[in-house]
Design a protein around this nucleic acid. Structure first.
Ligand SMILES: [Mn+2]
Ligand SMILES: [Mn+2]
Ligand SMILES: [Zn+2]
Ligand SMILES: [Zn+2]
Lengths: 152, 152
DNA sequence: GCTTTTGATGCAACATTGTAGCATTAGATT
DNA sequence: AATCTAATGCTACAATGTTGCATCAAAAGC
């Protein structure tokens, strides 16, 4: 590691990757850091923009594959629900699966950390691997702005 | 209506369309009937195949627009959750929103009529329009077939 | 440090799912 | 039958994601 470089986040990302037996590449490190910094799940496109901003050259396909790998390894998880594109978020430590809110006005996806996405009892024979709970509507910001008329 | 034609389902579809102020077209009638006959939500593609099977010429765009209209009118509803494509199902009478099960083996979406998709209490300011609950895993058929090894 | 190995990348080409614009058709109404 | 216009069918395009393959570079071996 070169001297005078801010180490904290980068190191945890690097260690995370190595611990899963993967090669530590600029793209993977930057993707993990982007997800870690974000309070809400990010789309492929948003992550790509972050990489561009950080001056990290990348290819659409590479990014897709980096994200696939992170999900395979359980480092990140994929969220459907919003529009047509997947969103990704980092998996925190004492992770319980939580619900998400999709705002139909601003398009944001908000993590509802306190709302568990629990699987109910199902008919015999069904094996549930995970539950996804997505609420659609207007988020707090958008609701405030536009109860009457659209856009304040 | 021509004589000797089986009227029941067709008529209810025609009436449903007319009651919503739309024009009764072959495509709309056939789409509604396909949805009514199906026990599970159908993708655009599956509906298209049904129309082809019924000898009803159609265009991809027309089908998309027919489905959009049905959803706008509240005659059908759209379901995300599974793979990348929307699925559609008819809205039955005493309709409560129910959860769905997505089988990751066979790709099927199963309606869990008895499992409500209820919206929990949210932080102040959030206005929920609808809740989507999707369980992912292995369905009863697939679970039975392949607990050990893949594919029986 | 240099070489080797192979996981990861970058590029091109393609697939799937869904939209927009616009001329034409045909369902409803008169 | 004539009229009005909602709905259709094309074409062209956008957004999102995948496959194959040659090349590169991260990690391991020496
Ligand atoms: Mn989340
Ligand atoms: Mn259903
Ligand atoms: Zn919002
Ligand atoms: Zn199944």
């Amino acid at each position: 590691m070169p001297p005078h470089e801010h180490p904290a986040a980068t190191d945890s990302a690097r260690e995370l990757i190595a611990a899963h037996g993967g090669r530590v590449t600029r793209t993977r490190v930057a993707v993990i850091e982007a997800l870690q910094r974000s309070a809400h799940p990010l789309s492929h496109d948003e992550i790509g923009a972050t990489l561009d901003g950080a001056g990290i050259g990348h290819d659409r396909v590479t990014l897709y594959r980096a994200l696939d790998w992170l999900v395979e390894q359980g480092i990140a998880q994929r969220i459907a629900g919003g529009e047509r594109a997947w969103r990704f978020e980092i998996r925190r430590d004492g992770d319980h699966r939580h619900a998400h809110f999709h705002c139909e006005r601003c398009g944001q996806i908000v993590c509802l950390e306190d709302v568990p996405a629990a699987a109910p009892t199902l008919p015999a024979g069904f094996a549930v691997a995970r539950a996804e709970l997505v609420l659609h509507g207007a988020c707090a910001d958008c609701g405030r702005a536009g109860v009457e008329g659209k856009e304040g």
